[in-house]
Amino acid sequence: MLPWIELDRAAIPGDGTELRLKQRGQEFSIMLGANELMNSRLSGSEEALATLSCERIAGRANQTMLIGGLGMGFTLRAALAVLPSDAHVTVAELVPAVVEWARGPMADLHKGTLDDARVDIHVGDVGALIRSKKAVYDAILLDVDNGPDGLSRPSNDSLYDRDGLEAARTALRPKGVLAVWSSGPDAAFTRRLRQAGFATDEVSVRANGKRGGARHTLWLAAKA
Results as ranks from 00 to 15, higher is better:
Leu2Thr: 14
Trp4Pro: 00
Glu6Thr: 12
Leu7Ala: 03
Leu7Gln: 04
Asp8Pro: 01
Asp8Ile: 00
Asp8Ala: 14
Ala10Val: 01
Ala11Gln: 07
Ile12Gly: 03
Ile12Met: 00
Gly16His: 00
Thr17Cys: 02
Thr17Val: 02
Leu19Lys: 05
Lys22Ala: 09
Gln23Leu: 03
Gln23Gly: 03
Ser29His: 06
Ser29Val: 11
Gly33Asn: 01
Gly33Leu: 01
Asn35Gly: 05
Glu36Ser: 11
Leu37Ala: 13
Leu37Thr: 08
Ser40Trp: 06
Ser40Tyr: 09
Ser40Met: 06
Glu47Tyr: 03
Leu49Phe: 04
Leu52Val: 01
Leu52Gln: 07
Cys54Ile: 07
Arg60Phe: 03
Ala61Trp: 01
Asn62Tyr: 04
Asn62Ala: 15
Asn62Glu: 14
Leu66Pro: 15
Ile67Val: 15
Leu70Ala: 09
Gly71Gln: 09
Leu76His: 10
Leu80Trp: 10
Leu80Gly: 14
Leu80Pro: 14
Ala81Tyr: 07
His88Ser: 15
His88Cys: 15
His88Gly: 14
Thr90Leu: 12
Ala92Gln: 14
Ala92His: 13
Ala92Asn: 13
Glu93Trp: 06
Val99Asn: 08
Glu100Ala: 13
Glu100Leu: 04
Pro105Glu: 09
Pro105Asp: 05
Met106Ala: 15
Met106Asn: 04
Asp108Gly: 10
Asp108Glu: 13
Leu109Arg: 10
Leu109Gln: 08
Lys111Ser: 15
Gly112Asp: 11
Leu114Arg: 12
Leu114Asp: 14
Asp115Ala: 13
Arg118Phe: 09
His122Ser: 12
His122Gly: 08
Val126Met: 10
Arg131Gly: 14
Ser132Asn: 14
Lys133Gln: 15
Ala135Gln: 10
Ala135Arg: 05
Ala135Asp: 14
Asp138Phe: 06
Leu141Tyr: 12
Leu142Ala: 10
Val144Trp: 12
Asp145Trp: 07
Asp145Ser: 14
Gly150Thr: 11
Ser152Asn: 13
Pro154Ile: 04
Pro154His: 02
Asp157Phe: 04
Ser158Ile: 04
Leu159Ile: 13
Tyr160Gly: 14
Gly164Trp: 06
Ala168Gly: 11
Arg169Tyr: 00
Ala171Trp: 08
Ala171Phe: 11
Arg173Tyr: 02
Lys175Leu: 15
Val177Asn: 01
Val177Thr: 15
Ala179Val: 08
Trp181Ala: 02
Trp181Leu: 03
Trp181Cys: 03
Ala188Cys: 03
Ala188Thr: 13
Thr190His: 10
Thr190Leu: 07
Arg192Ile: 02
Arg192Gln: 00
Arg194Gly: 05
Ala196Arg: 01
Phe198Asp: 01
Thr200Ser: 06
Asp201Val: 12
Ser204Arg: 08
Arg211Asn: 09
Gly212Lys: 04
Gly212Arg: 05
Ala214Thr: 06
Ala214Pro: 02
Ala214Tyr: 02
Arg215Trp: 07
His216Gln: 11
Leu218His: 06
Leu218Glu: 01
Leu220Thr: 02
Leu220Glu: 02
Lys223Arg: 07
